[in-house]
């Protein structure tokens, strides 16, 4: 009987929460519809096929201002994807190095890496982006300098890497996101490795197994279940943070939508599309990480 009352109470609370959410959504929707009627604008997506009339600095596929809004949003999507994937790879590498360095035996490396994590995690990402862009890249001279001969050339126009030109905006966003997310990933890696009991480390060391092999074969497989979920959430954060690209003039999806929305006056439709498209980035990451997770766990079971 006691159990019954308990479950009824729980049901009531759940019901209340649900009702609150539904009422809130109801009020929002209602206001939206009424405001749309009041301003005389319905919801329409016809504008998507009109020519945009604005140029873009970076486009992965061919584009001219006579192309329509669908195409320009697609280009924005591709630009975002480019920034997200590149930063994600670099941030993971940086995080792995910094995270392992922190628990490694080399005191100098471990101190450097903990200073990196401490400083970077405490400065807002937007400030960091401004720093890399306005103080980092734009302060370089126009002629540029080549620290590694002809391999890489840096100037205030961007990076020239083996003939591939990366704009200053793109480079600043990737640099900012990599360094910012790398710090969080480093902490996750460190936490994951620490979660493996000390006995495991001592065991393989006492067996005379090399440190790198022991780490790869014994420690990391055990640390992965602790690392992967947190890593996924960092990747999702990275994708969302990429919208800050607008602050340094990179034509990502959000920056493109921003222009589209002001030009067409279709804020509701524009933002709805933006939300759905962002969901797509994060679904891609979630699905990918889900697969990695499954693989890691399967391997562990075997």
């Amino acid at each position: 009987m006691k159990l019954r009352i308990h479950s009824n109470k729980r049901l009531l609370i759940q019901l209340l929460v649900l009702l609150t959410i539904i009422s809130f959504l109801g009020v929002v929707l209602n206001n939206l519809v009424i405001n749309l009627i009041r301003t005389g604008m319905g919801i329409s997506f016809n504008w998507l096929i009109h020519p945009t009339g604005f140029e873009l600095s970076e486009h992965a596929i061919e584009y001219s201002p006579s192309d329509n809004y669908v195409k320009v949003l697609l280009i924005g999507w591709l630009n975002s994807l480019k920034v997200i994937i590149v930063s994600l790879v670099f941030a993971t590498i940086l995080g792995l190095i910094a995270g392992s360095a922190r628990i490694g035996k080399n005191i100098f490396l471990s101190q450097v890496s903990s200073a990196y994590v401490a400083i970077v995690r405490q400065i807002p990402l937007l400030l960091q982006l401004f720093f890399w862009y306005f103080i980092g890249f734009l302060n370089l001279s126009e002629s540029g300098f080549a620290p590694l001969g002809s391999i890489i050339e840096l100037s205030n126009q961007g990076i020239n890497l083996l003939g591939v030109k990366l704009s200053a905006e793109f480079s600043a966003v990737v640099l900012g996101l990599t360094i910012f997310t790398g710090a969080s990933i480093a902490e996750i890696i460190r936490g994951g490795l620490k979660s493996v009991s000390k006995g495991q480390w001592e065991a393989f060391r006492s067996l005379g197994i090399q440190e790198s092999i022991g780490l790869r074969v014994i420690i990391i497989p055990q640390a992965l279940p602790a690392i992967l979920p947190a890593l996924t959430s960092q990747y999702l954060n990275l994708a969302k943070n990429s919208t800050l690209a607008i602050a340094v003039g990179y034509a990502d999806l959000y920056a493109v939508s921003d222009t589209v929305i002001t030009q067409t006056g279709r804020a509701i439709e524009g933002f709805t599309l933006l939300l759905l498209i962002f969901l797509s980035f994060n679904l891609i990451i979630s699905i990918f990480m889900g697969m990695v997770n499954k693989l890691a766990i399967d391997k562990n079971i075997k």
């Binding site: 604005f54 140029e55 873009l56 600095s57 306005f134 734009l138 302060n139 126009e142 205030n156 126009q157 200053a168 905006e169 607008i246 602050a247 340094v248 003039g249 034509a251 920056a255 921003d258 222009t259």
Partner: peptide, 21 residues
């Protein structure tokens, strides 16, 4: 032909211009 470097804010436009972007 030209390449637009777009910023959200006039101050950033000015900074980009003054810094030689």
């Amino acid at each position: 032909s030209y390449t637009p470097i777009k910023y959200q804010d006039l101050n950033q436009v000015i900074a980009g211009y003054l810094q030689g972007r």
